[in-house]
Amino acid sequence: DLSALRVEEVQNVINAMQKILECPICLELIKEPVSTKCDHIFCKFCMLKLLNQKKGPSQCPLCKNDITKRSLQESTRFSQLVEELLKIICAFQLDTGLEYANSYNFAKKENNSPEHLKDEVSIIQSMGYRNRAKRLLQSEPENPSLQETSLSVQLSNLGTVRTLRTKQRIQPQRTSVYIELGSDSSEDTVNKATYCSVGDQELLQITPQGTRDEISLDSAKKAACEFSETDVTNTEHHQPSNNDLNTTEKRAAERHPEKYQGSSVSNLHVEPCGTNTHASSLQHENSSLLLTKDRMNVEKAEF
């Protein structure tokens, strides 16, 4: 173990290094160091905050020279020094078990990766560091076993998940096959086929009936047209017969005018059967003409 005197000496050296690497504005270890034209180094955030307070150039807090945003430059070497100082402080805390008085939040800088452990060898070769390295080497064999167990647990979990997924996939297939086998029997399929065939026959029977009705309507229309044509021909046949009657009536009127007047009046009210309204109107006109002729003949006879 380190003596108290040596611990104090190391602590004083760390404090001196820390004062050199402090920012003059925030009085902390410089984060993202930036250098000016006057070779003074500050935190990048502190300098941008200072420049944004005034429009135009501002003055350096140490030498009062003008500073602009374009004049600022990043210093990589200074950032490396800060990183190495942080590593020294971490090693000091691990070796002594004491917390550094002016320690900052170094938890963000710590890294437990194997590459980081290899890099620590180049920091300080001390008894405390050696003991700590031995402890780490002793704890390393235990870690692979834990990793193997965790991997086995994960693989077993994956296997159970896969088996569950396969079961879920197989179950719908089985149910679907069961439904297909038990849903419709052979008799049901035959009945469905016969039902479809009967429906098709009914459709075939319905369509000819409609065509037959249309044919019957067409035949009825044709018969009505033929009947009207026969009526017209009958009226045409009746007209010459009426003319013959008129000639006979004229002759009778010349011989017996008194008797014919009474008979002509009675004939006005008689309509021949089986004739249309057109034929009756023609008869009325003929009878009126005959009456006028008879009157003329009677007057001539009187004179």
Rank of each mutant, 00 (worst) to 15 (best):
L146R: 12
T160D: 05
E254H: 05
H256D: 03
T207R: 03
G128A: 09
S228G: 03
P24I: 10
R295S: 03
E32I: 09
S75L: 13
F106V: 08
F78G: 02
T160W: 14
K293I: 00
D213H: 12
Y260P: 06
P208D: 14
D231S: 12
E148P: 06
K19E: 10
N297F: 00
K259M: 01
C26P: 15
E271P: 14
Q59L: 02
A193L: 02
N12S: 04
L217G: 13
K87Q: 04
S79T: 13
T36W: 02
G128E: 09
E120I: 05
L291G: 02
R135Y: 03
Q125R: 08
E148Y: 06
L51T: 08
G159R: 12
P141W: 02
S35D: 02
K69R: 00
Y260L: 08
Q80H: 02
S266K: 09
D184C: 00
S280K: 06
H269A: 03
T166E: 09
N234I: 01
A224P: 01
G128Y: 02
S186A: 02
E32Y: 09
K300N: 07
P33K: 08
V34K: 10
V298D: 10
H256C: 03
E249V: 03
S75Q: 00
F42A: 07
I20E: 01
K49S: 04
H40E: 04
S126I: 11
S58D: 04
E285S: 02
E120T: 08
Q53K: 04
L289R: 13
R130L: 08
G56V: 07
N15Q: 07
L282P: 08
T149G: 12
E214H: 15
A223C: 01
S264F: 03
E83G: 04
F45G: 07
N15V: 11
V121L: 13
D119G: 01
A279Y: 13
L204C: 04
T163F: 00
I20Q: 09
G199S: 10
D218P: 03
A91D: 07
A279C: 05
S145V: 11
T277S: 14
V161E: 12
T189I: 05
L81T: 13
S71R: 10
A220P: 14
L5V: 08
Q173K: 04
K221I: 00
E202R: 07
G274L: 14
S197N: 07
T277C: 05
E299S: 00
F106C: 07
E258R: 04
L94I: 08
T277N: 08
N143L: 06
L62V: 09
K134A: 08
K55R: 03
Q53N: 06
F78N: 06
I41L: 07
R77Y: 13
K44E: 06
L245E: 15
K87G: 03
D231H: 05
P144V: 06
A301D: 11
